[in-house]
Nucleic acid binder design. Structure first.
Lengths: 300, 300
DNA sequence: TGCAATCATACCTTTAAAGGTATTAAATGA
DNA sequence: TCATTTAATACCTTTAAAGGTATGATTGCA
């Protein structure tokens, strides 16, 4: 075999070099001198190279021995580092977390969670991307994201979904709009407005909830598919292109030209959930999940 | 022990990763599946880290496993390199040779030997320095040089001295000097001249031979200690500061203003020898010694 | 010449790991 | 539900290496 090299032997070899004396080296290693001699002999045999000249009063390193001395130190250092890194990864201290989110969660729970998590695990990297609930579920299966902030729904059993809060809905409407003078509004009052929604399907996620609310109020909303990005939606609202139905935490985002009206009755709610793969082997994620729960309890 | 990591296990681990299947990996390693499973288990136990998720149809790497996969590859590569380097050093293919020389050997035998040796071992570095025979013997003991080109003499038994050639002596004299018109000269004709010699002692080496030759001719030379460097000596000769007695191979160095006169009788000779440590463990040097012998036979 | 130091050798015991076969357990999928 | 796949477990043998003690060989030094 090519790698008939034993790290233990390399370590022993370095101790012998430090002492330049088999007896003392053996003492330092808490073994007798003959076993140590044989360990070095075995190393030499495995390499096919003589490492020491056994000149009597004082042994000497051969040229090859000097080369190996340098290399062995490097190897042991690298092995040590590898063990460290592996164990740290195991404890979730290093690595990365890719987050998907839809809607308003970015306005409070996601940044707060990341901030708190960072205090404990500063070396974990975050990648955050906005996508619809449906896209997130797909991305979770394909392992493109590690955790999704979604509107809860029935999912494949490979995933776990945990609702972390419920929010009331608010209507984002242009400040100049006639209806904007009230601060409460009923859904039926909006039946002639354009509803700004995302590009994707309406069967799930935030847009799905919007459709459901309208249908329950007895009308089919006049939707305009614009974008999934919350900031852009608000931009379109300000530009008087329509109204948007959003979770109330959106109120954290104050935007010129846009006002938020509470939707009545207040029983109309939308839930936010986190979803992740059941078989996740990632301690980074497990630790993050705990932080998210803690933050969710505080915020709501 | 810290390094209870077995390189064999790391290699096995990488094969399992490539196959992502214990059975196939075992097959590739020509062992049965249970021993392979145990090897991975042992690796995991030694690290204190789970590397695979044994999900049934398809195993998965954990986050820590992914980290180790990267590190293990690096380690194995480095070990491989270390073995290569050590073995090459053992064969004398890499390393360095420090040469000391006195007198004229630099004008032919040293550069020719280095040139020939380089063809076979291009990666060995050479360091060449001029010093007297006495200094070289000291430097050999202190391992500051690996081989010396000296005027042969009795040495400590830790060194080996091997004469490689004998040369006649020539007199380097200024072209303008009255004696420079002849092309042979007897030593007694120089008894009133200044003899340019090195800084160091006259009991051995080239300068020692010069003293001996003069004493045998019945006079005590009028010496001027200038420098050990041959090129500078020739410079002083050209500047008419005196004459120098040098081995005939110095004639390879043609210098404006300096002529070389053969010394008669031609029985007056000086030997050149190489010296090295008996306990040298250096294959680079052993190979170089062979080359030097070959060159010495050709040149003389 | 004999002593001290130092590493190698011989010979023994113990231990750990590797390797094998047979079987079990779990999970998927038809 | 049953067959199939796949890894783990149980149990065994063999082997290699580690460890020990006693002793021998070499060499420098007093």
């Amino acid at each position: 075999m090519l790698f008939d090299i034993d790290l233990q032997h390399l370590q022993t070899f370095l101790v012998v070099i430090e002492e330049m004396n088999f007896g003392r080296a053996a003492e330092r290693l808490h073994i007798a001198q003959p076993p140590l001699s044989r360990q070095i002999q075995r190393l030499e045999k495995n390499l096919g190279v003589e490492l020491f000249l056994r000149t009597k009063p004082q042994i000497q390193l051969t040229a090859a021995g000097k080369v190996l001395a340098v290399e062995a130190k490097k190897i042991l250092k690298q092995v040590d580092l590898a063990v460290q890194l592996t164990q740290r990864a195991n404890r979730g201290e290093i690595g990365q977390i890719v987050i998907g989110f839809e809607g308003s969660s970015l306005s409070d729970i996601v940044p707060l969670s990341i901030k708190m998590y960072r205090q404990q695990f500063p070396e974990v990297k975050f990648y955050v991307q906005e996508m619809s609930t449906a896209e997130q579920l797909q991305a979770l299966h394909e392992e493109r994201i590690d955790i999704g902030f979604i509107v809860p729904q029935q999912v494949n059993q490979a995933l776990i979904v945990e609702t972390i809060r419920e929010e009331r809905l608010v209507v984002a409407i242009a400040k100049s709009h006639p209806l904007a003078t009230q601060d409460k509004i009923e859904i039926r009052q909006l039946q002639n407005e354009h509803f700004l929604v995302g590009f994707r399907d309406f069967r799930c996620g935030l847009d799905g909830e919007v459709m459901k609310v309208c249908h329950q109020a007895g009308f089919n909303p006049n939707v305009v598919q614009v974008t999934n990005e919350m900031q852009l939606i608000l931009g379109f609202v300000a530009a008087q292109m329509g109204v948007a139905l959003l979770p109330s935490s959106i109120k954290n985002i104050v935007r010129e030209g846009v006002v938020y009206l509470s939707l009545v009755p207040s029983t109309v709610k939308i839930a936010l959930a986190i979803a992740w793969r059941k078989d996740t082997s990632c301690s980074t994620l497990e630790n993050f999940l705990q932080v998210v729960s803690k933050i969710a309890n505080k915020v709501s």
